[in-house]
Design a binder for these strands. Structure first.
Length: 705
RNA sequence: GCGCCCUUAGCUCAGUUGGUAGAGCAAUUCAUUUACACUGAAAAGGCCGGGGGUUCGAGUCCCUCAGGGCGCACCA
């Protein structure tokens, strides 16, 4: 019999274990694949989705840590050269928004602030969050290689990003031109299509008299920027007007507009006549391009009518609309109003203000050529998706891709390496001469994180790149499949000629028990760090694994976590029983018939569990192990063992004693990726060799699966 | 408008290629100095959203309807 350490006489206390065990792992050096024993040959790599370094880890982060750590630990035990490369994201716009809120609270604002000073402040804020978050990742048990940690603002990462931009310039994949872009009047920056949300809105639709025409519009306040009226070329009603000029009295005096014909106009809608306002409507902008119309800007960057609007100058769009509609009405310029007209507007995904279309020169990436290659790879099955249906979703998006605006008018980010002199453009970090003006914008943060897999591995020269690229699994939130996963695939193929990863595993959102999304305003946010402190990290991880199928939302609530806290304690008590009733002996006795059967049975279970692991069904693997340990091993096998161990038959006793320890040890090993802390702690008492469970063999007894 | 997902026990969810429905939590009854009350045993609980089809056989495949969630694109 082994003497039972005192700690097993008390309930399991995660607090006494976790910090100590994590240090032991970290000091062992085995998080770094280069330090793993010789049997670890074939690389298995996961690049961690770098958390935004602008706050604490939330449950979403806890999910990715749980799943990725589970995978990495499993593969490490199976003898892979397992690399999990951690990182942190400066998260351009996101962080700037967070910081602006902080400034607001302090009664300050970023506007008018010295940009250097603001940048320094945000940098300090980000770096302190970053180190804070690193410790939180440790608390969650992340067995990632800290020696390879990367930050999106590291010098080498920025170099890679610039290299990509220059390469794209050579390949004519980028252009800078004025286009109608999504402008947020609060955040004072343009946004990509993905950073907008479309929402249905009910507004009045005004039928306004425009000389001989009546036309329908929701935005009478933009009329000062009209540069034409358009009809459909096939519309017989207006055929004779095409090409002519109309003249009529407006609110600010006489107006002259050309009548143009364009297929864009739907004869069925309204009256079949449309006013064309190129500066403030993306569709009108396209029409204007086709017809060489000029654009007159009448709304400024703050969403206010400008000096071209006479007495209406200075009014905000919403107010202006009401006042102008009223004035038009009084002058008899409005024929009728359709009050409850439903249409969709685009809003800023952060502040949910209606976006104002504006014409600005921005850097765009031509996405079609990049998407084509990605589509080809995905169709060939070079990238597998879990769950499967995301493949379809991905292809659908790639097939309808638009050019990507990567310019942001914010200071927090990687500066765009471009210089201007008159109409000339130079791309490079350093000024080409005295009269050149620097581009003031920064890159969309996803432009840099889209290059993350090869950038972190030191492409093109780094030895890690050769060893670990393409990586094996990209595990992240389904929410960011287009923002991030799609762009990594496209940019990865573009830069390296190879897909960045073979498998995409997408987890769903974690919600509260009622299925509602957690949000600060609802007050239903639960912190993974608090839960881990209260119930133990292992319990939290089990709660996030079991019942969590890829791609679907999963509810997290304390009762569930508590159930797995009880399970950790069950393991603890089984240890107590096993230690006090068996001993660690080298030689295996001849097993009794019953015992052989029991071992076979466990072996079968472990094989099924292994198959589940290989097929990314962690929720099933975890549940099976849980169930086997508790309701077969503890409730049945241990119970019946008591009689055998207290009986007189020495052979049966020896057989059973060996069996219990063997079976338990196998289960502890299989449970390790799920519950790393408690299993490692138990392992330390279960064997005398002072080895780490972390690098033990995954328990497959005979045939490899 | 196009597309995706979901609907299974009171609650939260599983159910891999079609083979007589599962778990956790909750609720019920019983046990009690037991490795473990952060426990054990037993029982209870479901026309698997409705309808139709394929099949010897459907929670699972196909069609359709209803409800919920989400994505993409939109015409002033």
């Amino acid at each position: 019999m082994t003497s039972v350490p005192d700690k097993f006489l008390k309930p399991y206390n995660p607090k006494e274990t976790e910090g100590k065990i994590y240090k032991k792992w970290e000091n062992s050096g085995y998080f770094n694949p280069d330090n793993l024993p010789k049997r670890h040959k074939k690389p298995f790599t996961i690049i961690m989705p770098p958390p935004n370094a602008n706050g604490s880890l939330h449950v979403g982060h806890a999910v990715f840590v749980t799943i990725e750590d589970l995978l990495i630990r499993y593969k490490r035990m199976r003898g892979y050269k397992a690399l999990w490369l951690p990182g942190a994201d400066h998260a351009g716009f996101e962080t700037q928004v967070v910081y602006e809120k902080k400034l607001e609270k302090e009664g300050r604002t970023r506007f008018g602030m010295d940009t250097q000073k603001l940048y320094q402040e945000i940098l300090e804020f980000t770096l302190s969050n970053k180190s804070f978050m690193e410790n939180q990742l440790r608390q969650l048990g992340a067995s990632c290689d800290w020696s390879r940690e990367k930050f999106t603002l590291d010098k080498d990462i920025i170099e890679t990003v610039y290299e990509t931009f220059k390469q794209m310039d050579k390949d004519s994949l980028i252009y800078r031109s004025p286009k109608s872009i999504n402008w947020c009047t609060k955040h004072q920056t343009s946004l990509s299509e993905l950073e907008t949300i479309s929402e249905e809105k009910v507004d009045p639709l005004y039928y306004m008299k425009y000389g001989p025409f009546v036309l329908a519009t929701v935005r009478p306040e933009t009329k000062f920027g009209d540069t034409a009226v358009a009809v459909n070329p096939k519309d017989k009603r207006y055929k004779n007007w095409i090409g002519k000029e109309i003249e009529f009295e407006g609110l600010l005096g006489p107006i002259k507009l050309k009548v143009i014909a364009d297929d864009y106009v739907d004869p069925q809608f309204g009256t079949g006549v449309v006013k064309i306002t190129p500066a403030h409507d993306p569709n009108d902008f396209e029409v204007a391009k086709r017809h060489n119309l000029r654009a007159i800007e009448v709304i400024d960057q703050y969403g206010k009518l400008n000096e071209k609007c006479g007495k209406y100058a200075g009014l905000k769009v919403e107010e202006a609309r009401k006042i102008i509609a009223k004035d038009l009405m009084e002058k008899g310029f409005i024929e009728k109003v359709e009050e409850n007209y439903k249409h969709t507007v685009k809003k800023c995904y952060k502040c949910e203000r209606v976006l104002e279309p504006r014409i600005l020169p921005q850097w765009f990436i031509k996405m079609k050529p990049l998407a084509e290659k990605a589509i080809k790879s995905i169709k060939k099955g070079e990238i597998k998706f879990y769950p499967k249906h995301y493949k379809k979703i991905m292809l659908h998006w790639l097939n309808n891709i638009e050019d990507w605006n990567v310019s942001r008018q914010i200071i927090w980010g990687i500066p765009i390496p471009a210089w201007y002199k008159d109409k000339e453009i130079f791309i490079g970090e350093k000024s080409p001469g005295a009269d050149w003006k620097k581009d003031n914008d920064t890159f969309d943060t996803w432009f840099s994180s889209g290059q993350w897999p090869f950038a972190t591995l030191g492409y093109p020269k780094g030895s890690d790149f050769k060893k670990f690229y393409p990586t094996q699994v990209m595990e992240t939130a389904g929410e960011i499949i287009f923002f991030w996963v799609a762009r990594m695939i496209m940019l990865g193929i573009y830069r390296t000629g190879k897909i960045p990863f073979n498998t995409v595993y997408l987890h769903g959102i974690v919600t509260a028990k009622d299925g509602k999304k957690m949000s600060k305003s609802k007050g239903n946010v639960i912190s993974p760090l608090e839960l881990s402190a209260k119930y133990g990290t292992d319990a939290l991880r089990m709660a996030l694994t079991i019942g969590n199928t890829p791609g679907t939302t999963t509810a997290l609530y304390e009762e569930k976590i508590n159930a797995y806290k009880n399970f950790a304690n069950k393991l603890w008590n089984v240890t107590r029983f096993v230690l006090s009733n068996t001993s660690e002996s080298a030689k295996k006795p001849k097993l009794s018939k019953d015992d052989k059967k029991l071992l076979d049975n466990l072996e079968k279970t472990l094989k099924i569990v292994t198959r589940d692991m290989e097929n990314y069904r962690f929720y099933m693997a975890g549940e099976k192990l849980y169930h086997y340990l508790w309701h077969t091993f503890a409730d049945k096998i241990i119970e019946e063992s008591k009689e055998i161990l207290n009986g007189d038959n020495k052979n049966l006793k020896n057989s059973r004693s060996w069996l219990l320890r063997e079976m338990f040890s196998l289960q502890i090993r299989a449970l390790h990726p799920f519950m790393p802390f408690v299993t490692e702690e138990i392992w330390q008492s279960l064997q005398k060799k002072n080895t780490l469970l972390m690098i033990e063999n995954w328990p497959i007894l005979r045939n490899n699966v």
